[in-house]
């Protein structure tokens, strides 16, 4: 039985690194956004892994459970609550970004960030 927490921490680090790489170096804006969603997923995974307790139980108090046994065996639920909020925030940010991309695609006809998000002062000179 491998150490679950360690494996998951490594996965979350890998997800953050993959996401950062794509958000910085990939030219296609949709892939950049997918990369950003991987960063958020990695961070969420990390925070959930903080609350995990090896051999513990789900932190929901069922009827008939002994309270002190529950307190010493349940996983720590605070990080789970935080991640719930964070998932929803990530989804809404992503939706706004995709909406902006759709508007900008209509103007430029390409998904390349080099064209779409070029320095605006240069663009203004080009227009003139």
């Amino acid at each position: 039985m491998a150490n679950v927490q360690l494996v998951i921490l490594l996965t979350s680090v890998a997800l953050v690194v993959i996401g950062l790489y794509s958000a910085i170096f990939i030219d296609n804006i949709i892939k950049k956004i997918i990369g950003i969603s991987f960063i958020e997923e990695g961070v969420n995974l990390f925070i959930v892994a903080i609350g995990y307790k090896a051999g513990g139980v789900v932190p929901i108090l069922m009827p008939g459970m002994d309270t002190s046994w529950f307190a010493s065996n349940a996983a720590y639920p605070l990080p789970f609550g935080l991640v719930l909020t964070s998932i929803v925030i990530g989804a809404s940010t992503l939706a706004v970004m995709l909406a902006l991309v759709m508007v900008l695609y209509r103007r430029y006809g390409t998904l390349s960030t080099k064209v779409m998000l070029a320095d605006t002062s240069k663009k203004e000179e080009y227009d003139e």
Partner: peptide
């Protein structure tokens, strides 16, 4: 729109 998207992409790296 371009500026908003740029700010947002940077922000989505900064806030995670």
């Amino acid at each position: 729109y371009e500026m908003a998207l740029k700010y947002m992409v940077l922000g989505s790296i900064g806030s995670p």
